[in-house]
Amino acid sequence: MSLVVINATLYAVLGYLTFLGVFAPVVGTVRFWPSVFIPAVFAIAFSPLIGGLGAAIGIFISDMLIHGNALLSLSVGVPANFLGFYAVGLTYRRVKSTRIAIALVSAEILLATLLLALSLQYNMVDWNFFYAAVIAIIATLGLTLSFALLLRGEAFRVVFAGSTGLMLGSVIIGVGVWLFSQYLTLPTGQKALPAWAALVWFLWTYLTEIPFIALLAPPLVSVLKRVGFTWGDSN
């Protein structure tokens, strides 16, 4: 519980300070959020549950301070952060091979493309959205693998796990905020936004946050391991 509280506090405070800073752009209520490296490190160094719970609590606190919409936070921000950073810790512990990582990325591309094709067949999206989404999926998943493959050993595992979990969280945020807008008004005053907005939010979240995980998480995890300040099955 102490680690969860520390994780949540650091995540909320650093995120809020970033929001108050000079460079804090917002795209349709989804904020620039570089503090994502904090729960990623906790999920990897300690446990998936510690990373996920701390992120969920921390994002709720920051949401209440920034936009104050508890329903939006509980329905989108909290589950996206919990599941995303839980996945970071779980992926780190389960995926230890480059071959498995490549296979998983390929499977993710095929699955996502299949779901889009089914959506197109049932007239849930149009061809323009389909093409844009396929390109976005290949680009972001390719970026995931590229970040990881540029590094080796422990850094590879950290970056691949962080990127995979962040991708899951970004999907939940993109789709979740879009769905919320179909029934309720967003804090920005927007409502009933088109489906492509979900893709924009997904890309904005993933592409603006992955550099901070890739650059900051590996050295921090390495330091924690060197000083013996890790817990659970982090190997």
Rank of each mutant, 00 (worst) to 15 (best):
A101D: 05
A101C: 06
A101Y: 08
A101G: 10
I102F: 03
I102G: 00
A103L: 15
A103C: 02
A103V: 07
L104E: 04
L104T: 01
L104R: 02
L104Q: 04
V105Y: 02
V105N: 05
S106V: 15
A107N: 02
E108S: 14
E108M: 14
E108V: 13
E108L: 15
I109Q: 10
L110D: 05
L111F: 15
T113P: 00
L114H: 02
L115K: 02
L115F: 13
L116V: 05
L116Q: 07
L116S: 07
L116I: 04
A117L: 13
L118R: 11
L118W: 09
L118Q: 12
L120R: 13
L120C: 08
L120G: 07
L120Q: 05
L120F: 15
L120K: 09
L120P: 06
Q121R: 05
Q121N: 06
Q121V: 00
Y122N: 11
Y122R: 13
N123Y: 11
N123A: 12
N128A: 11
N128L: 12
F129R: 01
F130P: 08
A132K: 06
A132P: 00
A133R: 03
A133E: 07
V134A: 10
V134R: 04
V134H: 04
I135N: 02
I135R: 04
A136V: 09
A136Y: 03
I137C: 08
I137G: 01
I137R: 02
I137D: 05
L141P: 00
L141S: 10
L143E: 09
L143G: 12
T144K: 10
T144N: 14
F147Y: 15
A148Y: 08
L149C: 07
L149Y: 09
L150E: 09
L151Y: 05
R152G: 14
R152Q: 12
R152A: 11
R152H: 10
G153D: 06
G153M: 07
E154S: 14
E154N: 11
E154I: 04
A155P: 02
A155D: 15
F156G: 01
F156Q: 01
